[in-house]
Simulated assay, not measured.
Amino acid sequence: MPTLNVAPGLAAGGVFLFAARMTGDTPLGSSLNTAPPDLSERESLDLLVRHWGIEGRLDRLTSERDLNWRVSSERGRYVLKFANRQEDPEITRFQNLALQHIAAKDPSLPVPRVIPAADGATEVPLVDGSLMRLLSWVEGRPAHLAPPSSPLRRGVGAMAGRLTRALEGFDHPAAGHHLQWDIKQASSLRALVPDIADDALRQLCAQWLDWFDAIRPGLDALPWQVVHADLNPHNLLTAEDDATVVAGVLDFGDMVRTPRICDLAVAASYQIDPAAPLASLAEVAEGWADSLPLLPKESALLPGLTAIRMVTTIAITSHRAARWPDNATYILRNFPSAKAGILALPRP
């Protein structure tokens, strides 16, 4: 089992601040501050029939910034996706190309497959400038419904490592896009910290951001690549007959080029057992190491980067839930586990 060593605290000097695209007074960017597309079920189905020739029933799926429908048809089940109108179309194309890369590199990985339209196109532009696309449906049970267990934690780590391995060698001009969920952008979360209502939690998050500012330059020396970057339990599926087996990965909307270790930190941040935080973190890392053995520097930074992902979840969801109260239940779905996890991990 990998040994995890917490990186020692560094002096407050040498703070490295990342420039962020600002929208109003926040660093979230336009797609995170713009409501999802507002097409009706009938309008969405008409577009599906026109471009894919598929008739069926549409059931709306929850999404942070896009409009997604589950399609049930005689030809099978699919996910019909309409990108946020503020999202650069190249980012949608980036996601499709990544899925195609994964399918070629590791065909047995349980991820969505891109379904071409009738004319062979993988994305269809709409009049507002956004894109629609169709993906295959991945079978399984939502992992957030599975009881926590050591085998599941190792399975999450193993799937994360295998997926990151499958994305090795893939790149795209949009891979460097700014996304506030990306761990390497954590310094610009300071603009959102005041939105955290709990005083003690707000102060703890600020302390972790001080830690991150100090270690940020060292991330440049680690391996970087395109990663999924959002392996939370709502984007993972377990097997129908075994809640300890990870059977699918969904939602590649947060993919980005970043330090490789950040993908493990994201996955681990949702698997922490507050009663045994470092031991549960090591279980996730053990699964990851089956495909990608940790470098010593990655191992040392992993606990802190895991905490930074929790800070990211707490800060962004606090801000967005206030802005979009009608979608607050969905936005805040991971807040409780992030709060419990960050309170359990050793302090910076």
Rank of each mutant, 00 (worst) to 15 (best):
L4S: 02
N5Y: 00
N5Q: 15
G9V: 11
A11F: 04
A11S: 15
A12D: 14
G13I: 12
V15I: 08
F16K: 10
F18Y: 13
A20P: 01
P27L: 09
G29A: 06
S31Q: 15
L32K: 14
A35F: 01
D38H: 06
E41N: 01
R42I: 03
R42W: 00
L45M: 14
L45F: 03
L47S: 02
L47Q: 12
V49K: 10
R50M: 13
W52K: 10
W52M: 10
R65W: 14
D66W: 10
N68S: 07
W69S: 07
K81V: 03
K81E: 05
F82I: 08
E87V: 11
P89M: 05
R93T: 03
I102E: 04
I102M: 07
A103P: 02
K105S: 14
V111R: 08
P112D: 03
A118S: 15
G120T: 04
A121G: 07
T122P: 00
V124C: 04
V127W: 06
V127T: 14
G129E: 04
L134V: 06
S136V: 12
E139S: 14
A143P: 11
A143K: 11
A146L: 12
G155H: 14
M159F: 08
L163D: 05
R165P: 00
E168G: 10
E168W: 02
G176K: 10
H177I: 10
H178I: 03
L179P: 02
W181F: 11
I183K: 02
Q185C: 13
A186M: 03
S187D: 13
A191V: 12
V193H: 08
P194C: 05
D195H: 08
D198P: 00
A206M: 14
A214D: 05
R216Y: 01
G218F: 12
W224S: 10
H228I: 06
A229Q: 10
P233Y: 08
P233C: 11
H234D: 13
N235R: 10
T238M: 06
E240H: 15
D241P: 09
V246P: 13
L250K: 02
D251E: 04
D251C: 03
I261R: 06
C262G: 01
L264D: 03
L264F: 12
L264S: 06
Q271S: 14
I272F: 06
L281D: 06
A282H: 02
E283C: 11
D290P: 00
P293H: 08
K297A: 15
L302F: 03
T312V: 15
T313C: 11
T313N: 12
I314G: 12
I316E: 07
S318A: 15
H319C: 15
H319Y: 15
R320E: 05
D326R: 03
N327D: 14
K339I: 11
G341Q: 08
P346E: 01
